[in-house]
């Protein structure tokens, strides 16, 4: 049986990691390559890097980070943030990422999903979705709407319809981020996660709101997520990957046990 995946997420700006609370007041917490190795040894099943570098000129720094990470850890990792073209996708995959995540670029140009899937394989393309609860309204039957720009721009697209369309276009996985829950540490958006998981056949990574291990066991069972994205709850040392996996195992959830590193 497949193990449920625990995936630390590292926000990277100009080559350094940060962790934003609701996308504001980002605090610098270090070297992404060292953090990647730390989480690799700590038993993370996969890693996600989001490049939040604003200036396009400085984006090459991220490619160098990806290359160095790929020489340092031997588990899958994905890279997202600022991916706009097929060439952007190619660059991070060639640098050593296993998967590439598209978010707002896919909203503006859905064809990038199918082009990426065709060029690199479905398993390489992760559809990142930022979602806000807006209530049922015209065009938003599920009550969940796709947003971009960190939640500032409403796109008038139903999140459920977008998830189905993303799958049809060839996305291999969905990383589902609730803007409402993000940074709250109050738990994942369970209704949203369950809704999307029930309606697509590709894996769903739940994102936004993880504050304690119970939130993760909840979203992996009741939420039917295949994987859980975590950030500040481990970045600031509140919990270790082991704490989380111990809890999941107690709840009867299958997880992967990492080997101990001798040195």
């Amino acid at each position: 049986m497949l193990s449920k995946r625990i995936i630390p997420c590292l926000d990277v700006r100009e080559g350094r990691t940060t962790k934003g609370i609701k996308f504001e007041n980002n605090i610098d917490i270090g070297d992404p390559v060292k953090m990647a190795r730390f989480y690799y040894e700590a038993g993370a099943d996969e890693l996600v890097f989001y490049d939040i570098t604003a200036s396009h000129e400085k984006r090459d720094i991220m490619i160098e980070v990806v290359k160095e990470v790929a020489r340092t850890i031997f588990i899958p990792f994905s890279v997202g943030g600022g991916i706009r073209t097929l060439e952007d996708m190619r660059a991070v995959l060639l640098a050593g990422a296993e998967k590439v995540s598209v978010n707002s670029a896919a909203v503006k140009n859905p064809e990038i999903i199918s082009q990426g899937a065709k060029a690199f394989g479905n398993q390489c393309v992760v559809l990142g979705m930022d979602v806000k609860h807006v209530g049922e309204k015209k065009g938003i039957a599920s009550g969940y709407e796709i947003v971009i720009n960190g939640g500032r721009t409403y796109m008038g697209i139903d999140a459920l319809e977008w998830a189905k369309k993303g799958q049809a276009l060839g996305a291999g996985e969905i990383c589902l981020n609730s803007i409402d829950a993000d940074g709250t540490k109050d738990g994942y958006e369970m209704t949203l996660t369950r809704l999307i998981s029930d309606n697509v056949s590709i894996p769903v990574i739940a994102s936004g709101g993880a504050g304690k291990p119970e939130h993760i066991s909840e979203v992996l069972t009741r939420g039917c997520a295949d994987a859980a994205l975590i950030a500040s709850m481990v970045h600031y040392g509140t919990y270790t990957i082991n704490d989380i996996k111990n809890h999941l195992e107690q709840k009867g959830i299958k997880i992967r046990r990492n080997r101990k590193f001798s040195s």
Binding site: S3, R5, P203, C224
Partner: peptide, 22 residues
């Protein structure tokens, strides 16, 4: 989807491709 029941009687789906740690 292929729906199976695991030992916790949680509804689970077997997705293809088989992707992840096993």
């Amino acid at each position: 989807r292929i729906v199976i029941n695991d030992k916790n009687a949680l509804e689970r789906y077997l997705k293809v491709p088989h992707m992840g740690w096993n």
